[in-house]
Amino acid sequence: MIDTMVIFDLLLAVAVVALAVASMTTRDMFAAIVLFVVFGLLSALAWVRLSAPDVALAEAAIGTGVTGALLLRTLHHVQTVERKAAPEPLPVPMGVQIANAAFCGLLTLGLAAAFAGAPRGGPGFDLLVADAMSISGVDHPVTAVLLNFRAYDTLMEVVVLLAAVIAVWQIERGLSDAPAPALGEVWQGFARLTLPAIVVVGTYLLWVGSSAPGGAFQGGAVLAAVGLLLLLSRLYVPRPSHRGAARVAFVLGTGAFAAVALLVTGGGRMPFEYPLEHAKTLILLIEGLVTISIAVTLAALFHGREPVALPERAAGTGGRDDA
């Protein structure tokens, strides 16, 4: 029994590394992205084997799903907006390739040697977390770490997401509307069928997050998939008048999280120190609002540019703000 699992682990490990190499060396960019998506899913599978189902879920949904969609959307853009004098990539000489591979191998060996010498399997936070679980307000250890013990990190992580969407809106200001992806009738029908189901799954993930694998980030990613489908199927088209609401939705999670962290100091507590009797409620409230923000933000990151006013959009084909 043990032996078959070891063989499975070894095969999976080899597949993961091979896919990583392939996604770096395949000439066709589309194929490279597809290989990357398979790589991400197999990595998530490996993480399930390492008893980390929540992380595997997050990696599959956000690290692979949303990232893959972002990559494909960008590839689509790059291929649609054709460049006349696109520079041909120079063929890499064999010697350079061998040197790269050798460097890569040496690096792996060096790091692996240091890794092998480290005491794996503790000492970690196992006992500390187990002791503090009863006063954390939630039943699932990972959720307790994310939203209570290390809530400050998680707040800053949502801040990173906020910084990303502000930066993306800023970068793509005034960009023309042309390469917005449209997928046609089949996708529209598909979207109508699947949207309600995805909403249910996302909400469910959020709810079970306090006691089982799942939570704000996975739930947010699943709900973001709804946004992606809405955008792709043109069931929802962002308009300039929606910008105000979008801005509020982006900051909602961060704002509520930070406000709660400060407001609890009213009772003579530390920032982020939720009163025990309200801890579960507060954490669920934060998780819910953060989920909404994550979903809207991820969908906006996929859409890219800020929806600009129509007359401005009709005035040219991009680059107007290039002064």
Partner: peptide
């Protein structure tokens, strides 16, 4: 049971990485 802290760290890392990726890709498109 596994230590939950690194799991939380990796989830944080995943969200941070998708943010950074989105910005890099927006730069590439622009």
């Amino acid at each position: 049971a596994p230590d939950p802290v690194p799991h939380a760290l990796v989830i944080t890392g995943i969200v941070v990485m998708v943010s950074a990726t989105a910005v890099a890709l927006a730069l590439i498109r622009r």
